[in-house]
Design a protein around this nucleic acid. Structure first.
Lengths: 213, 213
DNA sequence: AAAAATCTACTGGTTTACCAGTATTTTATT
DNA sequence: AATAAAATACTGGTAAACCAGTAGATTTTT
């Protein structure tokens, strides 16, 4: 239908040949999409991009040489007109966050449907974002689970926890709340006991993780 | 088209009458959706739910009496067949996270399009998740921005930071890495300087916030 | 081969956090 | 009014973190 020059140029990077072939055959029938390149290693892609233009990179996260996150960062910095759509087997939230923070405009699980893939490519090509239903679900469930089993904190405890997380010391907190530092220390101890933390570091980690703040 | 009993029963909770009217008129034309209730306060909704069945609650987050997050939690716990779709003006990530963690199956910004709203109601009614494009975009951009201006950490620093965040003390880290505690302390100091933290608490906070780990 | 960055380790001192137990006062809950 | 929960504050001690400066050894980059 469309002229060759108007087609969306897609590059595929994945170390599983089966996945590459699957994606290729899925996209072969599409009039406005053209797979212009595919490879198994991240380095190969970076090499290819030096001499050729690509609109969309379908990028596996778990590559043998460099990790997908670094490639994403590099592509995003060097090529303003090339957008990355991340691909992975599991929807691990930390990875998704890192991908997004490094400029990935879309993200799909490998079991995404054909229509999701097509929609992702089209949306991202037009400058929008796209996260597959499975990714959204994974994000939601991960959030849901990491937040389960949340201990109940009192009003004062929450208040003090916030101040601890913000980096204030016991003495400063006491000053701010017009109470004795010894009281703050007691609250601190109770907080650690409630969330089962052995020191400030894990207290803060858990507070953020379970969004107790 | 569909019988009255098969329509999706929607309740609207928002303290801006204009928004309520807007939503109502948007949904009035839909054959398979029926707005069965609307109110301005969260308490009113909870009262209504005691005597009536509702499939979907369109819930504003910034309510005058109780906050939306608590209502969401309550509805989710008490009524297994009632699903909540959050509504808010801004896509603040912390709020979205809290909503999801309290069982909201969908989330939209108030400037969502008609088709987004309809799709959200239908998907959530069928047990799926739905987050509007604007929400996804807001999430992505918030993540992107909170992660901007990230200091570069060395391999060793990252390794030690991970162990600190996981709650290990300097001595334990030294043991684990077969180096002197004094070295670990130096790394610790350098880490704090790099991310501009004055103590462990803020170091951990920043590490998680900027996903340096 | 030289320069820069990273990792390593030290001295010597101050501050803050952590542990355990107790106990009074204030605020909700029944 | 009675009970429970939360907030307050203490003693006395140990452990860990924080601060500043220095500096040799190793690895990476130029």
């Amino acid at each position: 239908m469309a002229l060759s020059t108007l087609k969306i140029r897609v590059a595929i990077v994945d170390d599983h040949p089966l996945v590459v072939e699957g994606l290729k055959s899925l996209l072969r029938g599409k009039a406005d999409i053209k797979v212009v390149y595919s490879c198994e290693r991240g380095e190969d892609l970076l090499q290819y991009l030096k001499s050729s233009d690509v609109d969309i990179v379908l990028l596996d996260i778990n590559l043998p040489d460099i990790n997908g996150i670094d490639i994403c960062k590099h592509v995003n910095r060097e090529y303003q007109n090339t957008f990355v759509i991340g691909l992975s087997t599991y929807g691990e939230r930390s990875i998704i966050n890192q991908m997004i923070s490094n400029g990935a405009k879309g993200y799909l699980l490998k079991n995404a449907t054909e229509s999701e893939l097509i929609e992702a490519i089209n949306k991202v090509y037009r400058g929008k974002y796209y996260y597959g239903t499975e990714i959204q679900k994974a994000m939601a469930s991960t959030i849901f689970h990491t937040l389960g089993n949340t201990p109940r904190l009192t009003k004062r405890e929450k208040q003090i926890l916030k101040l601890i997380v913000s980096g204030k010391t016991t003495n400063k907190i006491a000053d701010e709340l017009f109470i004795s530092p010894l009281t703050v220390e007691t609250h601190r101890r109770n907080l650690m006991k409630k969330v089962d933390a052995s020191n400030t570091a894990s207290l803060v980690k858990i507070a953020i993780e379970k969004s107790l703040i």
